[in-house]
């Protein structure tokens, strides 16, 4: 009962937003090149951020779940930090590090020609900062749920540590990892403040919607918002299905 109230609270504003859009304005906004570019950029960057979170976050999650080392709780707290920092603050902090004179942004620009301020790389960096905790925490829970005795048995059956990781640990944690990456992806798409501060241009979808709101008013911005909502919800559902399916199509022999 209480749960359904909360569900209604989540669904009602979104439904209101969607139902208020005439199909004509949706079609018009969907035909606008900058809106399509913005949504494409959002999806691409969010995908890259989720990929990086998976590649670097999964080993960290395994370490946090299995290894016993001094300062483990401290490391876990650091992972959670982006969840507690207001995203405007995150944006400012990222500017200091990834800006043209930042201690990463500076050398990266000089030596590799990689600039973050006002580039897609900056967008990915901002997205990664705010969304990576979801990937690490979900994967960590997945690893913690695996009985370490299974890994030990696999070792005695002739498998080295890497083979155990590939054949036992990762397949058993796959669902949690996939869920974490889906959440990371969703969180990355929805990020506005940190992205806008580090890389207002090129415009991601949330920034584009904000810009349309300022320039053309509510109705065009709302139509673009519904478009973004539809695309990201569709992908979200698709990813969840894929993550769930992993349970059944796992390696059999």
């Amino acid at each position: 009962m209480l749960g359904s109230l909360l569900l209604a609270f989540i669904v009602a504003p979104l439904l209101g937003l969607v139902s208020a859009q005439p199909i004509g304005s949706l079609r018009r906004v969907a035909a606008m090149a900058d809106v399509r570019d913005a949504i494409g950029l959002s999806l691409g960057c969010a995908f890259a951020a989720a990929l990086l979170a998976g590649v670097f976050g999964t080993p960290l999650a395994y370490l946090l779940a299995r290894a016993r080392f001094p300062g483990r709780d401290f490391v876990a707290a650091i992972v959670d930090l982006p969840l507690a920092v207001p995203h405007t603050v995150a944006g400012i902090a990222l500017l200091y590090v990834f800006g043209r004179r930042g201690f990463i942004g500076g050398p990266a620009g000089r030596w590799f020609g990689l600039r973050f301020w006002g580039t897609a790389a900056g967008i990915v960096a901002a997205m990664l900062f705010v969304a990576a905790p979801y990937a690490v925490n979900a994967a960590r829970l997945g690893f913690e749920a695996i009985d370490p005795r299974l890994e030990r048995v696999a070792r005695t059956l002739g498998a080295g540590p890497w083979r155990v990781l590939w054949r036992i640990t990762l397949p058993l944690a796959r669902r949690s990892i996939a869920t974490g990456l889906t959440l990371t992806f969703a969180r990355a798409i929805s990020e506005f403040a940190a992205v806008a501060m580090l890389a207002y241009y090129p415009m991601t979808a949330p920034v584009q919607i904000y810009e349309m709101f300022l320039r053309y008013g509510l109705s065009d911005a709302a139509a673009a918002a519904v478009l973004l909502l539809a695309v990201s919800l569709g992908l979200f559902v698709l990813f969840r299905r894929l993550a769930g399916a992993g349970d059944r199509i796992g390696p059999v022999r």
Binding site: L157, A159, R253
Partner: peptide, 28 residues
């Protein structure tokens, strides 16, 4: 451990839940 030639059986038998019976037995 992988080179000791030991058959380990743990609490609740420790079967790999994502593999079939044949997959478990064929693991090595």
């Amino acid at each position: 451990p992988e080179r000791r030639g030991i058959g380990l059986v743990v609490q609740d038998f420790g079967l790999f839940p994502h593999l079939t019976v044949a997959g478990n037995v064929a693991f090595s």
